[in-house]
């Protein structure tokens, strides 16, 4: 097991209610992307969703990815989250070349190191909020009793203790996204990725979600989020702007 995984298990629980992580922000480059390409074959033509992206993300960074629709933001985030693989180029996570990892090793990376928050929540409709938050722990082999307490803590940290036994269709959009955030962080990942987490939410819910992401970053988790909303992007420490599969501006 990698050291950072052990860290998650051994660390005490922070005020957010989930295990804290490596608390040395901004020192090591957690993610290094070099000349990353993602090409889709559409009929006879090729679509370059990413062409030649170079990007370093420091541990503990809070990065917003902005850009017009179709510029490749989701594609980039999916590759960062090991949900997709680049066509060419290299991706190093904590110094390990992700391209060289086996399917099982990439699964373990997703399981222990990465939390993903989707624009459309992607909660399982048949499970309660509690059940959804327990899912990553179920596959990680966490015992039932521990799953219970950790899920309850994660739900408390997003302010949904009283909704633990509600199913997604009994929750508002903002509440669903908060459940999804609790699920993303319950394994104590070092990296939290959020693809337009506020895209389907009203202003007030969006702020609640952003407050949670801010707090996670303050606890030391690296946060990368994709957004169209300048105000949301303004919360992040750094911003990259994409256009047509390339990074055109960094700030």
């Amino acid at each position: 097991m990698e050291p950072s995984t052990i860290d998650c298990r051994l660390s005490t629980l922070g005020p957010l209610g989930f295990p804290g992580i490596d608390l040395i922000p901004g020192v090591v480059a957690m993610i290094e992307l070099k000349n990353l390409w993602r090409t889709y074959q559409v009929g006879d033509s090729e679509v370059h969703a990413l062409h030649g992206v170079d990007l370093d993300i420091a541990r503990g960074d809070y990065l917003a990815v902005i850009g017009p629709s179709g510029s490749g933001k989701s594609t980039l985030l999916n590759i960062l989250g090991c949900l997709d693989r680049p066509t060419a180029g290299s991706y190093a996570f904590d110094g390990r070349d992700v391209g060289q990892l086996s399917d099982l090793e990439r699964t373990q990376l997703r399981q222990n190191q990465i939390g993903f928050v989707f624009q459309f929540f992607h909660l399982l409709a048949r499970l309660t909020a509690q059940g959804n938050v327990e899912l990553p722990m179920l596959f990680a082999g966490v015992s039932r009793a521990e799953r219970r307490t950790r899920a309850a803590e994660a739900l408390a940290s997003v302010g949904l203790s009283d909704r633990a036994h509600h199913r997604p269709d009994q929750l508002s959009g903002g509440q669903r996204q908060r459940v999804a955030i609790a699920r993303a962080v319950v394994m104590g990942p070092g990296l939290v990725l959020a693809d337009e987490p506020t895209g389907n939410l009203d202003r007030a819910s969006a702020f609640e979600v952003m407050d949670l992401l801010d707090a996670m970053n303050r606890r030391g988790q690296t946060v990368v989020l994709v957004t169209h909303d300048p105000e949301v992007a303004g919360r992040a420490r750094n911003t990259v702007r994409m256009d047509d599969g390339e990074i055109v501006e960094r700030s």
Binding site: R110, Q111, R183
Partner: peptide, 8 residues
């Protein structure tokens, strides 16, 4: 399930 860390 895979995104959440379930193995194949």
């Amino acid at each position: 399930l895979k995104a959440l860390g379930a193995t194949t």
